[in-house]
């Protein structure tokens, strides 16, 4: 059962039992398998996990942004503003997308329109989602670009996406996501394609914006370094499921799922120079059937009989700390 600490008024977005499949010529891919989580207003929630673990599909499913077909949301509820987003008409959903919930993707080139100026793309969104009109729209657009640290904002409004560097395009994406003062921003690997000094610029902007705006952020990444400095809470996904969820400090200091431990162990540390890295053996398999066992068991050092026959449930293992594992890693014994 989910902890009671998150339910009720505190949550701005609440996902329960979300499951999404893809029906491909090669068979069914069970991309998301019963994912539940809540996002508190104003909090910074990181979602980590290896590629294919279901991070993007989870977030896209919330706003029905997956291609359907082949995709199919087979179960779940996404409560936002007292309504279930999965029940909304397309026209109503369109208002939420880019309005109250903003999206930032890894590659801004695919989400920016190449034939429209930056300014037009921001004002379009403002006209669609706010009451602003006339000069107020242009002023707001300039203000947004200044806010994300784009030098020469007024002149930049006239630029086309291809005239900007990758880092500048990502700033524009953030500006567009912020345009309508959303309650939630979902950022899917927004710095993965950027060089490290440019990534540092973007992270710095996100930190500043957090202080100034009251927007909750879901930040998807595979980089545990980026998460450490940004997030309040972290969700770890594996095989289309949440395997661990904790406050950021607890996750790094006291990881409870063997997969989380493995991920942290794979990162080189200073005090381990000259030693072998503690790699996780094997590689993740894509989920071809509804899981009837722990998906991580084939790679897990702690796997025992039960792990191969029963799906572990996500449950409380500490204060605001949940894990889905049949092994009690601190007690060094199976969980009951």
């Amino acid at each position: 059962m989910r902890g009671a600490y998150l339910s009720g008024k505190d949550a701005v977005l609440e996902v329960s039992d979300l499951s999404t499949e893809f029906h491909t010529p090669d068979g069914v891919v069970h991309a998301v398998n019963g994912v539940s989580f809540a996002l508190r207003s104003g909090e910074f929630l990181a979602v980590v996990g290896e590629s294919g673990s279901g991070k993007s599909v989870t977030m896209m499913s919330m706003l029905k942004l997956i291609p359907m077909p082949p995709g199919k949301i087979v179960a779940g509820k996404v409560m936002f503003d007292h309504q279930d987003l999965l029940e909304l008409e397309t026209s109503q959903l369109r208002k939420v997308r880019g309005g109250e919930i903003g999206f930032i993707f890894q590659d801004p080139m695919t989400s920016l329109n190449p034939v429209l100026t930056i300014g037009r793309q921001i004002t379009e969104s403002l006209e669609l989602h706010t009451d602003l009109s006339g000069d107020a729209v242009n002023d707001r657009a300039e203000e947004l670009l200044t806010m994300v640290g784009l030098p020469d904002a007024r002149a930049r409004l006239k630029s086309y996406p291809h005239e900007l560097s990758g880092g500048m395009r990502q700033r524009v994406m953030i500006a567009i996501a912020l345009a309508c003062s959303p309650k939630v921003i979902v950022a899917d690997e927004p710095t993965t394609a950027l060089d490290v000094t440019i990534q540092a610029q973007i992270i710095e902007i996100m930190k500043e914006l957090r202080e100034r705006l009251d927007t909750a952020v879901i930040w998807i990444t595979h980089d545990l370094g980026v998460v450490a400095g940004l997030a309040d809470r972290v969700i770890v996904m594996y095989g289309g499921k949440i395997v661990e969820e904790a406050r950021v400090g607890d996750l790094y200091a006291n990881p409870q799922h063997p997969y989380t431990r493995g991920l942290l162990g794979s990162i080189p540390r200073l005090d381990q120079k000259g030693q072998e890295l503690s790699a996780i053996e094997g590689s993740p398999a894509s989920i071809r059937a509804i899981p009837t066992s722990c998906s991580f068991a084939p790679r897990c050092d702690y796997a025992h009989d039960r792990c191969h026959t029963e799906v572990p449930v996500l449950r409380e293992v500490g204060a605001e700390h949940m894990a889905a594992c049949w092994w009690d890693i601190d007690g060094e014994r199976p969980r009951l």
Partner: peptide, 8 residues
């Protein structure tokens, strides 16, 4: 610029 995987 390299983020350190340690919140502390």
């Amino acid at each position: 610029a390299v983020p350190v995987p340690d919140p502390v």
